[in-house]
Design a protein around this nucleic acid. Structure first.
Length: 570
RNA sequence: CGGGGUGUAGAACAGUCCGGUAGUUCGCUUGCUUUGGGAGCAAGAGGUCCUAGGUUCGAAUCCUAGUACCCCGACCA
């Protein structure tokens, strides 16, 4: 491609709208343009990257045995009513009506449609198993779209749905997809980790997420370097302490803690460590009465885990200040279990705590030396907290470390959740009607582009892996429009590289060298050749890899073999 | 959805408090010079100051309503 015949529109300054680095760079590099909140145009340069990501995904999906199809973006309400999700899905579902006032939605996902396809087509066990996939535009009306295409409302997703006669076969395909996803992210050149995950609202039994590792990731991941254990912190189990509780030493003592409401403030006033305190969190119970959750002061409540307690109202709702006031006769920041008549549930890290600090149910006062049984009834102990760095691994093989990731893939064993609701059945060998087992497998295609940049950038711009860079090689001729020697050599090399099937860009603009270097660094072309009169006179050409710190000179005759060896290394 | 903020040239922003000729930097156009890390000089083009209504001799500026976008908030006990 010649830059003069393409469209490159870069910005020197970071736009005001972008908060995270990948969003800023995507706009500066001219990859995307915002149309409205959470909705972006993919400009020619960005589209090249998106298409390369798509092609790798398509390639590996085909290789895995999955079959591509394309379902409609606009879907009739009837299907969603059948699966009961028309009511359940909430405001994230973009709904619309046609001229006859019939209800439709713009698909946020395609379980309903694929189920409709399969139930019309599949009659016999002989037709199974099947795995259908598509790469298609979704719309989810997010509460707050942000970070550019990282959390957009309209986005591209690869979604696959598999159908089986039995659970064992679903498990086989699940592993097949797990391996396929691992191959995809490896080919994309990204550092990633597969982690055990919560199944969330989609339901089902087994589930893994695939995360691109990046400091700025929205998800926390716990993994064990000594084993292959890895899980989303939402799910990672915090084991109960094994050491026995020391016996109580101190008496219950009311301390004046004026103005101290947070754990940090209480610790400062009493000059103690947060691990010696217990925080009291009030949640609305199933019966509408407040339920008190106790968590060690330096730990965090895990909402997902709390959501699994049958005593609590769903979804988890924090009690209002008024409700707290009524139940504890004190305000948030000074409340505790002593004298509280309602239900108390404690995180099991508290099992071996004694002589801890807790709110005294009296504004500006806390108890020190609090103890179970002696001062208030021993509560039920359950796993309620997020694991922290250094916690023992749930598989007993070492201790956990934490890192952050961006979720780019998620695979589920749906089992029969949708096939029952949508009446997906087949006839078995005996001619008997059976329910189909189902799995689903998603990849956020547009999000991958943002995640790849989040993971691979420097002060000059993108350093994304070559397989997904907008171009593989760029030629920068110095004085293309002035110097016959340079132009001839650059054009010849461009022809040669293009003929060899290498995705080559030649910067034939009448720009100053600095501007060309800056643009090509920004858009992240991994291999760069600079063609100048100086070098040509010695039959030499300059090469610099995007991540290299130094350029190198090589004989012009060796360029082709050189770049081919580089490509093999990608 | 609650709270906060911002809408002024293609981009980033000043001007708004205290009403009186529409500004700066970058980008864009033309010319000359320049050409190995986002050039210099000169001349230019480019505006529904978000929209509607109001106050006023006069509104980017004040008032009312609307609208769009951005940020924060579901870990506070």
């Amino acid at each position: 491609m010649r830059v003069s015949q393409f469209f490159i529109s870069t910005l020197k300054e970071a736009p005001a709208e972008a908060e995270v680095i990948s969003h800023q760079l995507m706009i500066r590099a001219g990859f995307i343009k915002r149309l409205t909140s959470g909705v972006y145009t993919w400009m020619p340069l960005g589209l090249r990257v998106l298409r390369k990501v798509e092609q790798i995904i398509r390639d590996e999906m085909n290789r895995s045995g999955a079959i591509e199809l394309l379902m409609p973006a606009v879907q009739p309400a009837e299907l969603w009513q059948e699966s009961t999700r028309w009511e359940q899905y909430g405001p994230e579902l973009l709904r619309m009506t046609d001229r006859h006032d019939r209800n439709f939605c713009f698909g946020p996902t395609h379980e309903e449609v694929i189920c409709d396809v399969v139930r019309r087509e599949v009659k016999s066990y002989r037709q199974l198993p099947l795995n259908f996939y598509q790469i298609q535009t979704k719309f989810r009306d997010e509460i707050r779209p942000r970070f550019g295409v990282m959390r957009g409302r309209e986005f591209t997703m690869k979604d696959a749905y598999s159908f089986h006669t039995n659970y064992a076969d679903l498990e086989r395909e699940y592993i097949n997809m797990y391996d396929t996803y691992s191959r995809i992210f490896t080919r994309l050149g990204l550092k990633f980790r597969a982690v055990a995950a919560d199944t969330g609202s989609i339901g089902g039994t087994g589930s893994h997420e695939f995360h691109v590792l990046a400091e700025s990731g929205e998800d926390a991941i716990a993994y064990c370097p000594q084993s292959d254990y890895a899980a989303n912190v939402e799910l990672a189990e915090a084991l109960a302490p094994t050491s026995p509780a020391p016996s109580a030493q101190k008496p219950l003592n009311e301390q004046h803690t004026p103005g101290a409401k947070t754990i940090a403030e209480v610790c400062a006033v009493l000059n103690i460590n947060a691990a010696q305190t217990v925080k009291s969190i009030v949640i609305e119970g199933q019966d509408g009465k407040p339920v008190l959750l106790l968590i060690r002061g330096d730990h965090e409540l895990n909402i997902i885990k709390a959501g699994k307690l049958s005593q609590l109202k769903q979804p988890i709702t924090f009690a209002s200040a008024a409700m707290i006031r009524e139940a504890f006769n004190a305000d948030p920041g000074a409340i505790g279990p002593v004298g509280f008549a309602g239900q108390v549930i404690a995180d099991r890290a508290l099992i071996n705590m004694t002589d801890f600090v807790i709110g005294a149910n009296k504004n500006d006062y806390h108890f020190t030396g609090a103890n179970f049984e002696r001062d208030f009834p021993k509560p039920q102990f359950v796993d309620l907290r997020n694991v922290t760095d250094g916690d023992p691994s749930p598989d007993g093989k070492g201790s956990l470390e934490l890192c952050r990731g961006i979720e780019v893939g998620h695979i589920f064993q749906l089992r029969t959740k949708y096939s029952e609701a949508m009446n997906l059945s087949y006839l078995d060998e005996a001619g008997k009607k059976q329910i189909i087992e189902m799995g689903c497998y998603g990849i956020g295609v547009t999000r991958i582009v943002a995640a790849a940049i989040e993971q691979n950038h420097d002060e000059h711009g993108l350093t994304i892996p070559a397989p997904i860079a907008p171009f593989t090689v760029v030629l920068i001729p110095i004085g293309y429009h002035k110097n016959e020697l340079v132009r001839t050599a650059a054009d010849a090399l461009y022809q040669q590289l293009s003929a060899a099937g290498i995705d080559t860009l030649i910067d034939d603009r009448n720009e100053r060298p600095g501007a060309m270097f800056a643009d090509m660094d920004l858009i992240g072309v991994p291999h760069r050749f600079v063609i100048g009169e100086r070098g040509l006179k010695e039959q030499r050409i300059e090469y610099k890899g995007r991540r290299d710190t130094q350029a190198q000179e090589l004989p012009i005759a060796e360029v082709m073999t050189f770049i081919q060896s580089k490509q093999c290394a990608d």
